[in-house]
């Protein structure tokens, strides 16, 4: 059984293991080049699709791993914490976040890596993100109805589509592979155009 299911995430052991897993998280983000806001935003100008390649391969690796552990009985997916699917606020939140991402140059996790790499713009982004989070607090009671709009009783997409989890993970892997091929082709075309 995991720490969340045993209500132990806030215990010293939970805090310590979270620190260690966070360190691995930060390591991989930095290795990928995500301590650089110019590299992160290059995808939006079709120059470098590392963001798509890293995110999709991470998501597919974890999705396939989780489904494999579940079908072999080594993990109970129902015992894991996942954020609720509430479609409308997640759509609006995603739109706000996307503008913030390309204008600010970071997302919260990569900004921490940027700060660790000495980037002052990452520090400023994090201060802004802290202020933005606090700005939500007075809005939350007023937006109570909207914040529950589109809540899904079945949160997982395979569940809603009536397919099994493993099939859903394999479908995600197939979509990712197609995206990798497409992204690499666009990178080549753009590199040629810039070289000209």
């Amino acid at each position: 059984m995991n720490l969340y299911a045993n209500d132990m995430l806030g215990e010293p052991i939970g805090l310590l293991l979270s620190l260690l897993i966070g360190a691995a998280f930060g390591f991989w983000l930095e290795r990928a080049g995500f301590g650089s806001s110019r590299k992160l935003t290059a995808i939006f100008y079709l120059r470098d699709f590392a963001v798509l390649k890293v995110m999709f391969s991470a998501m597919v690796t974890a999705a396939l791993g989780l489904q494999l552990l579940a079908v072999t009985g080594r993990i109970d997916l129902a015992a894991l914490y996942v954020p609720e699917s509430i479609v409308w606020p997640q759509l609006v939140g995603g739109l706000l976040f996307g503008v913030g991402f390309v204008a600010g140059g970071w997302c919260p996790g990569t900004a921490a890596v940027g700060l660790a790499s000495g980037k002052l713009d990452a520090l400023v982004f994090l201060i802004g993100a802290g202020a933005g989070s606090l700005a939500f607090a007075p809005l939350q009671p007023r937006l109570a109805d909207f914040l529950h709009a589109g809540a899904c009783s079945v949160g997982s997409l395979p569940g809603q589509l009536g397919i099994s989890g493993p099939v859903g993970a394999l479908a995600l892997a197939a979509i990712a592979l197609a995206a990798f091929v497409g992204a690499t082709a666009v990178e080549r075309i753009m590199a040629k155009r810039i070289a000209r």
Binding site: G93, F97, G100, G132, A135
Partner: peptide
């Protein structure tokens, strides 16, 4: 941008 991302993350 940080402000918008921080706010958006709370919505989502």
């Amino acid at each position: 941008g940080g402000g918008l991302a921080g706010l958006g993350a709370r919505f989502a």
